[in-house]
Design a protein around this nucleic acid. Structure first.
Length: 395
DNA sequence: TCTGGGGTCCTAGGACCC
DNA sequence: TCTGGGGTCCTAGGACCC
């Protein structure tokens, strides 16, 4: 069936929200984030500015760009509105990030019209209700819908009809495929392959030999536009992490960075009412290429700063020889193996009657008894949501 | 061109258990 | 006494995505 899956993706999301909220920025090159480019408006991209680029480099490329600090609250709010339109458009929505989702519109033909019509209306409604441009790709599978939206950006709509998948995919450069990153692209290019069609001419066995069993099979399928993965709402996040990048000179400086990183992670965990059991230490060394990770699984899950910092320090000590040889340029900590913290309740103060901390505490006492609270912490909205809210947190 | 920060999933080997 | 298949958990690394 043609176009039963839509991929909707808001264009230059952070930058577009800034331009929406400040008309002086409209039509001008806008860069969100000073240290590193988190988003660039299309006006800035015309100068070669890209996400992930260092701030100084971006300003060299585009000296006239307006650089604004990110406002995560505004992005989360815009994302809520965006997903509100998605939810009104299709019964089944899979959020990929704050600004992007797959929508299953199978069976909506008689109610809502053809996929093309649904997609066009979705774009109009987002424009009207959220004030942003969203590009939509429609196809019979997730990969093809995703590649279609990539191809139609910005502010576009591309429907790939059933049966037209290969005609659409095969002339495209193989890097366009969703799931082909730098490493895979390098391997394929070394074999002289350039387009998706070139990849599709390889047998499954050849691709398995090149990339491994699973990756090879997957690429063999998607190069033919075959992707059995259904549109499925994502579950909750599976890890919390944070990192510090920069030259770390000496043990004291490294330990201070480690402590700050752990504090950020555990604070967010407590704010979400989650605890975790596996602590992962990530390191990058002086050559900026070599990386290593060390992990340790605790007996009991925790969100305690002290417990996780102790584990992280032990892991760091186990990597001392590597550090002494090369120096460190990054230290990061992630916590996996998440569970709900049964002893902790996180509730929004403004939703607990009265809009004050005392009122919220009284709600808890009423429900669980006067001695239920051993400790209460007031968290800002931004601590709960930003930075980098996962799609599992949006709903 | 020097270097993002936050995530997800897969692979592979070893330990341990039944 | 020797061989064995299959499952789960843990650790380290790698690829990819936004």
């Amino acid at each position: 069936v043609s176009g039963t899956i839509l991929h909707a993706d808001a264009d230059a999301f952070f930058a577009a929200v800034e331009q929406r909220d400040d008309r002086r920025l409209r039509g001008r090159p806008v860069i969100v984030g000073g240290g590193v480019v988190m988003a660039a408006s299309y006006e800035a991209r015309a100068f070669g500015v890209r996400g992930g680029m260092s701030g100084p480099r971006a300003r060299r490329l585009c000296p006239d760009a307006v650089v604004v600090e990110p406002r995560f609250d505004a992005y989360v709010e815009a994302s809520r509105a965006l997903f509100g339109v998605f939810a009104r458009t299709a019964p089944l929505v899979e959020g990929v990030s704050l600004e992007e989702a797959f929508l299953d519109v199978r069976g909506l033909e008689r109610i809502a019209g053809s996929p093309e019509w649904i997609a066009a209306r979705l774009r109009r409604e987002v424009r009207a209700a959220v004030g942003l441009a969203v590009t939509v790709g429609a196809a019979s599978s997730k990969v093809v819908a995703k590649v279609a939206s990539r191809t139609a950006k910005p502010d576009g709509l591309l429907v790939v009809p059933a049966g037209g998948e290969l005609e659409f995919l095969h002339p495209l450069p193989l890097e366009r495929l969703w799931g082909v990153g730098p490493a895979t692209a390098r391997k394929l290019r070394r074999r002289g392959l350039v387009t998706v069609g070139d990849v599709a001419r390889l047998t499954e066995n050849e691709l398995v030999g090149l990339l491994g069993r699973n990756a090879g099979r997957h690429l063999h399928a998607i190069a033919r536009g075959e992707d059995p993965r259904p549109v499925r709402p994502r579950g909750r996040r599976r890890s919390f992490g944070s990192q510090f990048a920069g030259e770390l000179r000496g043990a004291a400086e490294t330990d201070a960075a480690l402590a700050a990183v752990v504090e950020r992670v555990t604070r967010r965990m407590r704010a979400s009412g989650r605890i975790g059991r596996t602590v992962v230490l990530r390191l990058r060394f002086g050559d900026y290429a070599t990386r290593a990770s060390r992990s340790r699984t605790l007996v009991e899950p925790t969100a305690s700063t002290a417990a996780i910092l102790a584990a992280a320090r032990a892991l760091l000590a186990s990597a001392t020889p590597l550090i002494e040889r090369d120096g460190l340029t990054l230290v990061g900590v992630s916590v996996l193996g998440l569970e709900d913290d049964a002893d902790q309740l996180v509730l929004p103060v403004d939703g607990a009657g009265g809009g004050s901390l005392d009122a919220a505490l009284n709600v808890v006492r009423d429900r669980f008894g006067s001695d239920a609270i051993t400790r209460a912490t007031l968290l800002g909205r931004e601590e709960r949501l930003a930075p980098w809210v996962g799609p599992g947190d949006v709903r």
